[in-house]
């Protein structure tokens, strides 16, 4: 494999030695651009107590283009679909090369604390969220208990 750009090496090093609270990210041995990630559900959110697995990939164009990220753990959230794809502006048109893996993961963690049903990716979830927020939150808690238990 071609040598990794210095920026990626540095980011990786810092993620391993000094990860943000509730977040872990480690590259795969056979592909150093492909990271196994976990994000803990934020306190006071329906995802509290859950540990969510994600995967992240740095394409050739990184950091000019954003990383690719998706959830591997099932999650009931209006901005995350059944395949784990995430609707988050900084992963799309609001990306800037000044952002990092670290900031992306923190933003994803923040998204768990602030679901936005007005910009949905999972339409059925968003609709439920708008019509009956209490029921939606109960469902999100239930899924967290079922799927995000770290097993």
């Amino acid at each position: 494999m071609a040598a990794l750009p210095k920026r990626i090496l540095k980011e990786t090093e810092r993620l391993m030695s000094d990860a943000p609270p509730g977040i872990s990210a480690a590259p795969n041995n056979d592909n150093l651009r492909h990271f196994d990630v976990t994000v803990a559900g934020p306190d006071q959110s329906p995802y509290e107590g859950g540990v969510f697995k994600l995967e992240l990939f740095l394409p050739d164009e990184y950091p000019m283009n954003p990383p690719k990220v998706r959830f591997l753990t099932r999650i009931y959230h209006p901005n995350i679909d059944k395949l784990g794809r995430i609707c988050l502006d900084i992963l799309k048109d609001k990306w800037s090369p000044a952002l990092q893996i670290r900031t992306v993961l923190l933003s994803i963690q923040a998204l768990l604390g602030a679901p936005n049903p007005d910009d949905p990716l999972a339409n059925d979830v968003a609709q439920n969220w708008k019509e009956d927020e209490k029921a939606a939150i109960a469902q999100a808690k239930e899924w967290t208990r079922l799927y995000a238990n770290g097993e």
Binding site: N31, D60, R70, R85
Partner: peptide, 12 residues
């Protein structure tokens, strides 16, 4: 060239 993992390849 970066090797695109199976999952992101299939998503695209």
């Amino acid at each position: 060239m970066a090797k695109i993992p199976r999952s992101f390849r299939l998503l695209s």
